[in-house]
């Protein structure tokens, strides 16, 4: 019990510190359109390829719609999602470089350990050099960092409901059917990382090269905090019973993945995009 409450206290303090952390740096500016540099198809087999196949990086309007939560909350019911704007692609290393230039607190060498793990920007050479592939999505970033980036641009992280409304399209009987053979060879379950919903033009928005942070990633189960022993148990053997659609393996994989995260985690395959 002592250990539990200590963790809870620490997590509360962590959240509080984030809330109180001053937003530093200049006002936001719009994302630089870099569609020209983007190849039409991302390089086959590239672990974290550029988000290509889209005309522009500007945010895309996602019309009001519905989202069927993966896990039943009482009766199965779809939740209305209001119209919102979502970036057409994940934030790139180039965009993130601009952010850390103006916000020293988020530089690789200066980030607070509470807000990001030691692998924060692990593939960057140093504070000002993200290395090659500037158009690739930035990864090895924490939830705290992603939140700060979006806030810096007067934006925010999308909620799970919004993200799933935009990218959770999947016919479970044709899982992966749209994947190219080359992409399949390297990452056969990449389909789980998102597909534009049926009513959203697939050429206007790109998903499926990385996992993405959401604002409420750790409340997917709506069952308390993510460090406890109760919150996730429904994900294991009880998962099928509580799921609205136990054949939607892509959704299973996304929810499973999100529920394993903590806000300071920085992973090779995890980036983000902003909404407003």
């Amino acid at each position: 019990m002592l250990a539990r409450s200590t963790i809870a206290t620490a997590r509360f303090a962590l959240g509080l510190m984030y809330c109180l952390a001053p937003m530093t740096g200049a006002r936001p500016r719009d994302a630089p359109p870099n569609a020209d540099r983007c190849a039409t198809e991302h390089e086959a087999g590239h672990a974290v390829g550029p988000s290509c196949g889209i005309k522009k990086r500007e945010p895309v309007m996602i019309p009001a719609g519905h989202y069927l939560p993966f896990f039943k909350q009482g009766r199965a019911q779809s939740i209305p999602v209001a119209e919102f704007w979502l970036d057409a692609a994940p934030v790139t290393r180039e965009e993130y470089l601009d952010f850390v230039r103006r916000n020293p607190a988020w530089r690789k060498s200066q980030v607070k350990a509470l807000f990001a793990e030691s692998t924060y920007l692990a593939d960057w050479i140093n504070d000002s050099s993200p290395g090659d592939n500037l158009e690739d999505p930035v990864t090895f970033v924490s939830w705290f960092a992603a939140r700060a980036f979006c806030a810096d641009r007067d934006r925010r992280l999308p909620t799970v409901a919004e993200w799933e409304r935009a990218a959770g399209a999947l016919n479970p009987t044709t899982i992966g059917a749209q994947d190219t053979a080359a992409a399949r060879g390297k990452a056969p379950f990449r389909f789980a990382m998102g597909r534009p919903s049926a009513d959203i033009q697939s050429t206007s928005i790109s998903f499926g090269t990385i996992w993405e942070w959401t604002a409420d990633f750790n409340s997917a189960m709506a069952l308390g905090d993510s460090t406890g022993t109760n919150g996730r148990s429904s994900l294991f053997c009880g998962a099928g019973f509580r799921s609205n659609n136990p054949t939607d393996y892509a959704a299973f994989l996304r929810y499973s993945f999100r529920s394993s995260l903590r806000a300071n985690y920085t992973l090779k395959i995890l980036g983000f995009r902003c909404a407003r």
Binding site: T229, S233, F236, S260, I269
Partner: peptide, 20 residues
């Protein structure tokens, strides 16, 4: 999940972990 471990999930929750 160790079937030999008599406890919740056989360790499933205790061991659940993200890449890296």
């Amino acid at each position: 999940d160790f079937h030999a471990a008599a406890g919740p999930e056989g360790g499933g929750d205790a061991s659940f972990i993200a890449p890296g």
